[in-house]
């Protein structure tokens, strides 16, 4: 019921972010003759990222629909957000590794040390690591508090027992609620989170190691790398938050009205989960909107003569 009430808000947040990201998207227009190689590299990496997103989305849909047929308990279905994120990350890796600038007889390079830290945008780094950390903590907590369900499947429900005095007689009361994100769901999800983290690291290294197209386009090339790194972190954030939302929802509903008095820790976790679930869902919708709207920085040809200086914030087209 709560999910149904929250859903319109989430859709609204997703659409609003998509529109906002489209409107605020910066296009760095540069004279093609001055930065031809950067424009070519930018187009190739952008195309492969978009292709990765499309393939990832199609596979995620397949996992959502087909997964339910294979495993009605939703273990496969829960991996759909990670599949979409992995598609974007793989598209980024392939794009960055195959975007090779043309080399002439005379080639120059800057004497510099490029590092992953140098291209990471602070806000997105904080969001990606924060959401992945909260997801990891929620899954570990789910494993720690999970117990077997009525058919003996370990880590699929949350069980509590307590003693209550009814009509002067001490009665042992027990209840079990599920689905619960215990080991049954959490182990494959933690595995997916690990793979996603490795893919994100690989994509960031690929972004940094891509050869510089030309020393005359250093600023523009750096801008592109930062945009690509932000895209990697957006995909990671989306996967983590879209996975976290149902996990938090199941934790919240599992801890509610168990029939026994909750411990202070359980109460705190339960309330936190009620807050985290809609926030994570809205955050995932926003991240998906940004992924669909495309990269923050787009490089386009400018046929008319220009200054040749490319900088962040130059005209939006």
């Amino acid at each position: 019921m709560v999910a149904l009430r929250v859903l319109p808000v989430v859709v609204l947040v997703g659409v609003a972010t998509f529109v906002l990201a489209l409107v605020r998207r910066r296009t760095v227009a540069v004279p093609a003759a001055d930065h031809a190689e950067v424009v070519r590299v930018a187009r190739r990496t952008r195309t492969l990222r978009a292709l990765g997103l499309a393939v990832g989305a199609a596979l995620a849909l397949l996992v959502l629909v087909g997964g339910q047929a294979l495993d009605a308990l939703g273990r496969i279905t829960s991996l759909a957000p990670a599949v979409l994120g992995a598609g974007v990350l793989l598209g980024t890796v392939v794009g960055e590794l195959t975007a090779r600038p043309r080399v002439g007889a005379r080639r120059s390079a800057a004497v510099e040390t490029r590092t992953v830290r140098g291209v990471l945008p602070r806000t997105w780094t904080a969001l990606a690591t924060g959401s992945a950390t909260v997801l990891g903590a929620a899954l570990l907590l789910g494993i720690a508090w999970g117990s077997a369900d009525d058919l003996g499947r370990a880590g699929r429900s949350f069980a509590v027992t307590c003693t209550q005095v009814i009509d002067g007689t001490a009665v042992q009361i027990g209840s079990s609620r599920g689905p619960w994100p215990g080991s049954y769901y959490a182990v494959p999800l933690l595995g997916a989170l690990l793979v996603l983290g490795l893919l994100a690291a690989l994509a960031l290294v690929a972004v940094v190691r891509r050869p510089r197209p030309s020393v005359d386009s250093l600023d523009l090339d750096t801008l592109l790398r930062r945009g690509a790194a932000a895209n990697v972190l957006t995909a990671t954030t989306f996967s983590a938050l879209a996975t976290l939302a149902p996990v938090a929802l199941f934790i919240a509903s599992g801890l509610a009205d168990s029939g026994c008095a909750s411990t202070p820790l359980q109460s705190a976790v339960g309330w936190a989960a009620w807050v985290v679930a809609p926030l994570a869902l809205a955050g995932a919708a926003a991240a998906l909107g940004m992924l669909l709207a495309g990269p923050v920085i787009r490089v386009a040809d400018q046929q008319a003569a220009g200054s040749g200086v490319a900088a962040e914030g130059t005209p939006v087209r």
Binding site: A105, R106, R107, S108, A110, V111, E112, L218
Partner: peptide
């Protein structure tokens, strides 16, 4: 940034 250049010719 300083640059270095290699010329095949």
């Amino acid at each position: 940034l300083s640059t270095v250049t290699v010329d095949d010719l």
